[in-house]
Structure formats: C-alpha cells, structure tokens
C-alpha cells in the first residue's frame, strides 16, 4: 500500500505543499477560487521552521495505535479500514481539543472547515487525500513537492532506496550520502547565521 513518506533533509521550506493541501480540501478544489471560499480552506500539512530555520513538512503520521484516537471523547477519530488512514468525522467532533494534547506532532488544528459542518469549529488534520486517491490522483502535498521531500510510495520501496543510497556512498568511500554542494553551502551559512544570532 502506498503512503506519503517524509524525507526531512530534502525540504527546502518553500511551503508549496500548504496551499496545495488547502486547495485539495476546499469545496472548489482550484487555488484561485479556493481562496475566495468562506470558510477558507486551510492546509493540513504545516511547514515549520527547525532550529536553523530549515523547513520541515509536519503532517499526520497516522500512528498505530493513534494517541488522538485513544483520547477522542466522542469516537470521532477512527481508522479508515481500507487505507489505515486516521480520520476525523467532523460531524461527531465536538471541538474539545483533547486530541491537541494527545498528538505528539502537533498537527491537529481547530477551525471551521469547508468540508465540515457549517458554522462550527472542528478538529482538522491530514486525511491522506482519500478523496483524491479514490479518483486516481496522488496526495496533493506530494504532487506539489518538487524536491522529493514528500513522496507517495510503498514504505518498503522508500526504505530500499535509502539503504541503496547509503550503501553506494559507503562503498565509494564517501561516507553518508552528501547533500548537493549548493544546498550544503547554503545550510552551512544559515546555521552559522542562526548560531551567531543566539550568541
């Protein structure tokens, strides 16, 4: 089964996954019209800044067992049998924020959602784009990501690829796979800058 896999070292912090996600979870599903919708669709993937201001696409891991599901007061959080996706039923959700204290990744938000009941805030998080996938598309964040920080593939495939990359660079004596020089250069500069700022 394919799933969204995050490759943190690849994220360049462009945040393009965020509007793509919001658009995919809008009523009109087009960026231009989605921004005009009321309530406004909001992203369910959140690019946060790390210690050196590097980007990180933070999205639901669909944990098993899922702490949010265990803590949900109303049973609104459930696991989609076919895809193992942890879903929130917006009509059962009472917006109590119990899941906010359960989610170790801080990916759940509370707001009125175009796909939820009107006039009422509910808990909202990644649903693995089940609607898009059912239509034969891939999740919107993966489609938007041009650097391979988010991929949609079998977990095994991704692991094998990673193992192979490490093995190749190890056997060529290069050690851990290195970043492209421009990327490495910029990161070094930014790390140095942030460290100086704190010093």
């Amino acid at each position: 089964m394919k799933e969204v896999i995050v490759h943190p070292k690849r994220c360049v912090g462009c945040m393009q996954c965020m509007p793509a996600c919001a658009t995919a979870h809008s009523r009109t599903r087009h960026l231009v019209s989605a921004v005009l919708e009321t309530p406004q669709p909001k992203p369910r993937v959140h690019v946060g800044a790390g210690r050196f201001n590097e980007g990180f696409p933070n999205r639901c891991r669909h944990c098993d067992p899922a702490p949010c599901q265990l803590t949900c007061l109303t049973g609104a959080i459930y696991r989609h049998a076919g895809t193992q996706t942890v879903m929130i039923d917006p009509d059962r959700c009472i917006n109590c924020a119990s899941c906010a204290m359960a989610c170790p990744y801080g990916v759940i938000r509370f707001h009125e959602d175009p796909l939820g009941p009107p006039g009422r805030a509910v808990a909202v998080k990644c649903d693995n784009c089940v609607a898009r996938v059912a239509e034969g598309q891939i999740p919107a964040c993966v489609e938007a990501c041009k650097v391979g920080a988010l991929t949609y593939e079998e977990r095994d495939t991704a692991m094998k690829r990673q193992t192979l990359a490490v093995a190749r660079s190890m056997s060529s004596g290069a050690g851990e796979p290195v970043l492209p020089p421009g990327v490495g250069l910029l990161r070094t500069m930014k790390e140095s800058q942030v460290q100086l700022l704190k010093g």
């Binding site: 690849r10 360049v12 462009c14 041009k146 650097v147 391979g148 990327v183 910029l186």
Partner: peptide, 23 residues
Amino acid sequence: CGFCDMGLSCRICVMGPCRVDPF
C-alpha cells in the same frame, strides 16, 4: 523558501512560475 533562497525560482514569464530541484 529554499528555492528562492538558492535563486532557483523564476517568475519572469507566465509559462512559469518555475523552480529547479536542487537535489
């Protein structure tokens, strides 16, 4: 944005906007 920070995003024309994957 890392694309912009690296100079890899281009908004010059409307066939774009474009960006190049540094990886």
